[in-house]
Nucleic acid binder design. Structure first.
Lengths: 206, 206
DNA sequence: TCTGAAATGGTGGTGGACTCTCATTAGAGA
DNA sequence: TCTCTAATGAGAGTCCACCACCATTTCAGA
C-alpha cells in the first residue's frame, strides 16, 4: 500500500545516476540486503528469520546489515512513505470531487507501475499487512497518509481539515482501503484496483 | 511476536462469584498485576517498563507475571473484546438502519459504563493506540471487530457480508472510528461519544 | 489435622536484536 | 603510486522477554 520513493538520500532500486562507484556500490549492497531479507521473510516467515541468516544470504556481515537498516523492521518498511494513491491524488483535476479524484488517481497509478515492480511492491505490502509487527512499524506511515489524505480532501472541498465533513469522508475512505487490504491479504490475486474503485464508488453520492 | 492465541479461561475483572478463596485470590492477583503494569506503562512508557519492575510493583515474582500473562503485550491487550460498541449493536432494534443502530448502540453503551471503569478503559485504549507494539498485538481484535461489524450490518441490510454495499459501509464506519481514536489519542478529553455520533451521521444518508 | 494439589518464588538459561570498538580493506583524489 | 577517508568484518558485550526446573508455601477436602 505504500509506495513512492520520494526520499532524499537513499535510492532503493535505481542505481543512482550521476554518482561515483562508491555510491553505486552502496546502493547495490543496500538493495541486495533488502532483497534477500524479503525473500527469506516470505519463505520462512518474519520472526523465524534472523539477521544473521539475512547477512549470510546477502554475503555481508551482520554489522553491515545494521549499518544499512537501523532495525529489522526497516528491512521491510524502509523509508517509504505514503499510500501511492495519495501521491497521485495531488495531480488530479481540482474540479473533480474528492472521491472521484482519488479513484482516478488509483486507476492511473496502478496502471503506470511496471508489473514486475508492482509485484515486488505487492509482496512487500502483503508482508506488512500480514505480520503484526510490521504493521505496527508502518503505523506511522499509515496515519501520516491519513493526514495527508485529509488535507488534500480539505483543499478540494474548500473546508478546514477539522471540518466534520472532511474527517468523515477521509476516515471512511481510509477504512475502505484498510478493509480492502485485509481482503487482499487473504486473496493475493484480488484485483486491487477494481475492488477499491467499486467500493469507493459507494461513497460518491455528493 | 504473533497474535495472541485468544485466551480462554481467564476472567478479567469480575471477582468470580461463587468460587473458592483460591479462585478469588487468583483473580485478585491477576487484576493486581495488570493494574500495576498499566500504571507503570502510563508513567514510564511501555518499552521502558520491564517485567521485573512490574513484578516488583505488584509484589510477585516475574515468573508469576508470566504465569498470568503469556506475553508482555497481553498485560494490556488481554483477551478483552475490543470496541465495546460492537457488542451492544446486537441488541438494537432490527428495524433501524445500520448506522442509526450503531449510533444508538454507542450512545447507550457509553452512557451505561460507570465512569471509573470508563476512564480505565480509556487509558487502556489510549495505550493501545499510542504504542505501535500494542496496536499490533490487538490487530487481531480489531480485524475481528471489523468482521463482526460487517456480519451484523449484513444481517440488518439483508445482504451477504461479501456484498459491496455492506463492505463499503462497514469499512467506512471502521475508518471513522479509527480516525476518531487517533484524534482521541491526541486529545484524551475529547467527547468520544459525541464525536463518533456526529461523524457517523455523515454516513447516514440512505 | 493430615494429604494431595495448586500457586508461587527463585534460579539459571536461551535466543536474538542491537551496540561498540577496532583492525582491515577498498575507493577517491592527488 | 601514495595517502586519506569511507566501508566492511569480526568479536565481544548488553539487554530483556521468555522458558524450564525445582523447592516451598498455601489452600482444599477428608
Amino acid at each position: 500500500m505504500t509506495v513512492a520513493p520520494s526520499n532524499s538520500s537513499e535510492v532503493p532500486s535505481s542505481p543512482a545516476r550521476g554518482s561515483s562507484l562508491r555510491e553505486r556500490k552502496k546502493a547495490k549492497t543496500r538493495a541486495n540486503i533488502q532483497q534477500h531479507a524479503l525473500r527469506l521473510f516470505r519463505a520462512q516467515g518474519y520472526d523465524a528469520t534472523t539477521i544473521e541468516q539475512i547477512a549470510e544470504a546477502a554475503e555481508v556481515s551482520p554489522s553491515t546489515v545494521f549499518r544499512y537498516f537501523a532495525t529489522k523492521e526497516d528491512l521491510v518498511v524502509a523509508d517509504d512513505t505514503d499510500l501511492m494513491f495519495v501521491a497521485a491524488l495531488r495531480t488530479q483535476d481540482p474540479a473533480l470531487s474528492p472521491v472521484r479524484a482519488l479513484r482516478q488517481a488509483i486507476r492511473v497509478t496502478i496502471g503506470a507501475v511496471p508489473s514486475a515492480e508492482f509485484r515486488a511492491r505487492r509482496d512487500r505490502d502483503f508482508l506488512i499487512v500480514t505480520v503484526p509487527e510490521l504493521w505496527a512499524a508502518s503505523l506511522g506511515n499509515v496515519t501520516s497518509s491519513l493526514q495527508i489524505l485529509t488535507t488534500l480532501f480539505a483543499e478540494r472541498m474548500g473546508l478546514s481539515p477539522e471540518h466534520h465533513s472532511v474527517r468523515a469522508l477521509s476516515g471512511a475512505v481510509f477504512g475502505i482501503m484498510f478493509d480492502t487490504m485485509l481482503q487482499w491479504s487473504k486473496d493475493p490475486d484480488l484485483d486491487l484496483a477494481g475492488e477499491l474503485d467499486s467500493l469507493l464508488a459507494h461513497l460518491d453520492q455528493d
